[in-house]
Nucleic acid binder design. Sequence first.
DNA 1: ACTTAACCGAGACGGTACGTCGTGTCTTGCC
DNA 2: GGCAAGACACGACGTACCGTCTCGGTTAAGT
Lengths: 215, 215, 215, 215
Amino acid sequence: MAQNHTRIAGAPHGSDPTNGKRPPGRPRSEESRQSILRSTLKLLKQDGGFGELSIEAIAADANVGKTTVYRWWPTKAALVADAFLASADEELRFPNTGSVQKDMSLQMRRLIRILRSKRGKVVAALIAGGQSDAELIEAFRDRFLWPRRKQAYQTLQRGIERGELPAGSDLDLILDSLYGPIYMRFLIRHDKLDENFADEICGLVLQGLKRQPQR
Amino acid sequence: MAQNHTRIAGAPHGSDPTNGKRPPGRPRSEESRQSILRSTLKLLKQDGGFGELSIEAIAADANVGKTTVYRWWPTKAALVADAFLASADEELRFPNTGSVQKDMSLQMRRLIRILRSKRGKVVAALIAGGQSDAELIEAFRDRFLWPRRKQAYQTLQRGIERGELPAGSDLDLILDSLYGPIYMRFLIRHDKLDENFADEICGLVLQGLKRQPQR
Amino acid sequence: MAQNHTRIAGAPHGSDPTNGKRPPGRPRSEESRQSILRSTLKLLKQDGGFGELSIEAIAADANVGKTTVYRWWPTKAALVADAFLASADEELRFPNTGSVQKDMSLQMRRLIRILRSKRGKVVAALIAGGQSDAELIEAFRDRFLWPRRKQAYQTLQRGIERGELPAGSDLDLILDSLYGPIYMRFLIRHDKLDENFADEICGLVLQGLKRQPQR
Amino acid sequence: MAQNHTRIAGAPHGSDPTNGKRPPGRPRSEESRQSILRSTLKLLKQDGGFGELSIEAIAADANVGKTTVYRWWPTKAALVADAFLASADEELRFPNTGSVQKDMSLQMRRLIRILRSKRGKVVAALIAGGQSDAELIEAFRDRFLWPRRKQAYQTLQRGIERGELPAGSDLDLILDSLYGPIYMRFLIRHDKLDENFADEICGLVLQGLKRQPQR
DNA sequence: ACTTAACCGAGACGGTACGTCGTGTCTTGCC
DNA sequence: GGCAAGACACGACGTACCGTCTCGGTTAAGT
C-alpha cells in the first residue's frame, strides 16, 4: 500500500492500523464500496467518457444512495481513479530478460494491449478528465504512472550497468521518448497503434543510444 | 489522408464556390459568428476547461441568442475546434535553416511555447474532449495536426536529401518520437515542459539516427 | 361591410372605395391572405386551442413568410378573429315564424349545432384567448355577438308587439338568460348540450314571461 | 357525479389513509408546496392570465427549483387549479333564509363579487385554460362547480317543498339558467355584471316558475 | 423599356420560457 | 452512525416560438 500519495481514495476506514479501536456506529459497507467501483468501471467503458459519466447513474446502477458515493469520494475524479488504478497492477510489471530493449519492448507491448482494450477507455477518460481537474491527473500520475516508472528506472539502470546504454543518460527523457509516442497515438489516433509500434520505438530510441559513445 | 475538413465547422456560407447563387433568406451574420468564436476562446482560457465551458455562457458573453450558436455548431466540441484551429496557423510554420535538427527544434520550441500559454488550455480541451467525441479529435487531427505534419515531412525529406537522416526512414515514427514526448508531458504533467525539452528530444532522436549507417 | 368596428382585421386594401387611386408598389396578394386564414382555421381545429396555435406553424402551413402574417395582422388574436368571424354569418340569421319562442328556439338550435361541430373549437378558442387578450374578446363581441344580438332585439320586439312578451321587458336580460346557459354548458361541459336544450331554456324563460302580467 | 377528484392535484402525500407507512426518502416540503401555491395565485392576479403565467416565474418567486414544481404538478393547469380551488370554499356556501329566491340571489351575489375581484382572473384563467385542457376544466367542474351545485340542489329542493317551485322541476336546467347569464357576462364582457344582476335573473327565472301551475 | 415602391418567400437574428437532467446537499426511517 | 431513498435549490441543457430584421426576387403604376 504505502504511498497513498493523494488522499483521493476511498479505501475502507479500518485499513490503517492507527488504532486498535474501531469507531462507533455502523461500519462502512464493503459491499457498497465494491458495487460502486464496479459500476463506475462498467459505465466508464460504455459511455462517452469521464464527462458523460454521472454520479447519479453510478449510484443507480450500484443500487446505492448518492449520499454514499459522496460520503467516500470527494469528486468524480477520485472515484474514477480509485476504480481503475488498482486494476492493472500486476499486468504492467517489467520483465528482466537481460536486455533493456527486450525488457522495455515487452512491457510497452503490454501497455499497448491494455490501451487497445476496453480498459483503454478508462485511461483516456482519466487523462481527458485530468485536463480540467488537477486532482484527477495527479491521481493518474501518482498511482498509475509513477509506480511503473520506478520499475522502469531500474530496468534502464540495469541496461546502463550492462553497457547497453550510455552512463549518465537522462532516464526521464528516454522514458518519455519511449512512452510519449504511444500516448500520442492513443489519444490523437492519427496513426495505427499496434504492439509492433513498441518495437519500432525501441529500435529508434534505444538503438540510437547504443551507438552513442559513453560520456 | 484526405483533408476532408470535417464538416464540423461554422465557416460562413459562401466560402465554398459550390454555386454562384446565394441561398434565400437573411444571410448569416459574420459579426455574430466572430463574436461567438471570440467569446469561446475567452471563456476557454478562463474556466476550468472544456467541461466547465457552457454554451449558455458563451451566448451571453457574445450577446447572441443560444439558438444562433446551436444553428451553426452541432456540439460544443465543434465550436471549440472552430474557435481555436484557425488561430495558430502562421506561428507554427517550419523554418528552413539548412539543418533538420535546427528546423525541427525551432518549430517544436514554438509549439511548446503555445502549449505553455493560455492557448494551451484550448489544445488540452480539444484533446480531452476528443476522447469522448470522435468528431472533435478528428477535427483536431485534420485541421491542426495534419497541415503541420505535411510541412514536417518536407523538412525531414530535406534532411534525408542532405544526408542528415538515413534514406528510407519511417517519417511518421520519427515525428511521433519527437512530438509524442511533448504531448505526453503537456497532458500528464509528470515532468517539466520547457523549450529546452525540444532540443533534448531532437538530440536523442535525431542524433541517434545520424549515427545510423545508411540502409 | 359597414361596421368594421375594431380595426383588427386584415381585409384587403382596396376594399374601401376611399379613393380611385391604387397605391404604388406590388398589391397585396389575395392568395396569401386566404391561404393564411385557411391554415389558421385548420390548425385551430386541430390543436389544443388558441394558446397552442403558433404563428410559425400558420406561416409554414400556408407556405407564407412570417413577415406576411405580421404585416397584416397585429396579433394572433386579430388573425383568429378574422379567420372565423366571417364564416358563420348566414347560418345564424333569425327566422320569422310568427312566434318568438319558435324563432328564438330555432336560432339557438343552430348555434348549438355550430358549437358542437369542429367550428365550436374556434369559438371556444376565441373566448378562452379573450380572457387574457382584451382585443380578442372585443373582436368576438363586436363582430360575432353584436350583429346577431341586433337581430335578436328585432325578433323579441316582434314578440312584444304580438303580446307574447310583456312590454318593457329587459331584452338584454332575456337574451343572456337564453344564451348564457348554452355558453355555460359549452364552456364548462358539466352537462349535456344538445339541440333540445334550446327548447328547454325557451320553455323556462319565455313561458315564464308569457304568464307575467303586462306592466 | 362521482367526486373522483381528478388526481390533478398536489396535495401532500399522507393525505390519503391508504397505508400507515410513510414512503422512504425525504418527505415532501410542505413549505415549498405552500410557497408555490402562494406565488401562483399572486402572479395569476398580476399578469395577463393563464397564458402569460410562466412556471419559470413561479419557481423564481417562490424560491424553489423548477424541478420541484414539475415534480408535483404535471401541468400549469393543474397547478392553477390547485392554487385556487381550495380558496373560495366557505365564501360560497348557500344561506337558508326560508325563501329560494333570496337564498339563490344571495349566493349569486357572492359569486359575482368574487368574479369581479382579483380572484375572478383565476376563474377566467381556469375556464380559458380548460378549453384546451380537458383535465383542467374537469378539475374546475369537480372541485369548484359540483360541490356548490350539490348545495344548490338542496336549496332548490327546499323551495319545492315550500311550494315556491313546481314539483318535478328540472333542477339542472334552472341552475344553468341562473348561473349561465352570470358566466356569460363574466367571460364575454358584453354587458355590465354587478350584484344586482343576480336579483334580475332570479326575478326572471324564479318568478316565472312560481307562476307556473304545479304539474 | 425603365424606375420606383411595396409586397413576397425565406430564413437568420436576439430573446424568453420550456421541460429535463445532473449537481451536491438535505432529511427521513431503518439497520 | 452508515445506509437507501428520494426531495430539495440550482444551473445548464437543447428546443420551440416570439416578433424583428435583412436578403433576392416579383409585380405593377408611373414615367
